[in-house]
Design a binder for these strands. Structure first.
Ligand SMILES: [Zn+2]
Ligand SMILES: [Zn+2]
Length: 199
DNA sequence: CAATGCGGGCCTT
DNA sequence: AAGGCCCGCATTG
């Protein structure tokens, strides 16, 4: 009887300490959990104030990926990588596709590429594009933090995105190649090719 | 070409 | 000191 009760208490304490090990840490702690019983599967859309512990083998974690458009930002701490959200690119006239969906483009991560992007037109209605910035963290963009420690990669996010999800990296890449193919076969482009062949 | 990371430097609180 | 951010440069794919 007593033995059973003790075991139950022990199990609960194990649970509690396990839970503490998994969640009671902050990215800024001097020491992070060393004995993690289980790592998380990569989270593509981390939102709100969440923390994850990934395996150092996880390719997505290694590359500090996110389907949110996150850009590197200088926090003067080489141990902890900080990224902040760029929001989402929307159509300036709020058009919808034929199947009733809104345009939520992925902001280019590179500053220069983003400036170019904002001069382009809506792929659906040809209207102007607008960058909807993220204000999910006290009026500032949501931030993500990454830290490699031993065989783990610790992730922590601060803030809740106050905007729609952008296209994923893959969707954005696909859109670009389609656009590229379109221009390559456009009448003007074909005409230019002819001219170059003659020369 | 663009994604990603680094770090000097500047600004405001 | 801390946080946000701009910018140029390097690496990677
Ligand atoms: Zn549009
Ligand atoms: Zn955001």
């Amino acid at each position: 009887m007593l033995k059973g009760a003790d075991a139950s208490v022990m199990e609960q304490e194990d649970f509690a300490s396990q839970h503490r090990e998994m969640t009671s840490w902050d990215i800024n702690d001097i020491k992070l959990p060393q004995h993690v019983s289980q790592t998380d599967w990569f989270q593509e859309w981390p939102d709100s104030y969440v923390k994850h512990i990934y395996s150092s083998e996880d390719k997505n974690a290694q590359r500090h990926h996110s389907s949110w458009a996150m850009r590197n930002t200088n926090n003067h701490n080489s141990r902890i990588l900080k990224k902040s959200c760029l929001g989402v690119v929307v159509c300036g006239n709020d058009c919808s596709t034929l199947d009733g969906r809104k345009i939520y483009l992925r902001p280019a991560i590179c500053d220069k590429a983003r400036q170019k992007q904002q001069r382009k037109c809506c792929p659906n209605c040809n209207g102007p594009l607008r960058l909807l910035s993220c204000r999910g963290h006290g009026g500032y963009p949501v931030t993500n933090f990454w830290r490699h420690e031993g065989q783990f990669i610790f992730f922590q996010s601060k803030g809740a995105h106050d905007h729609p999800r952008p296209e994923t990296k893959l969707e954005a890449e696909a859109r670009r190649s389609i656009q590229k193919a379109k221009t390559a076969f456009s009448p003007t482009s074909l005409r230019l090719k002819r001219i170059q062949e003659i020369e």
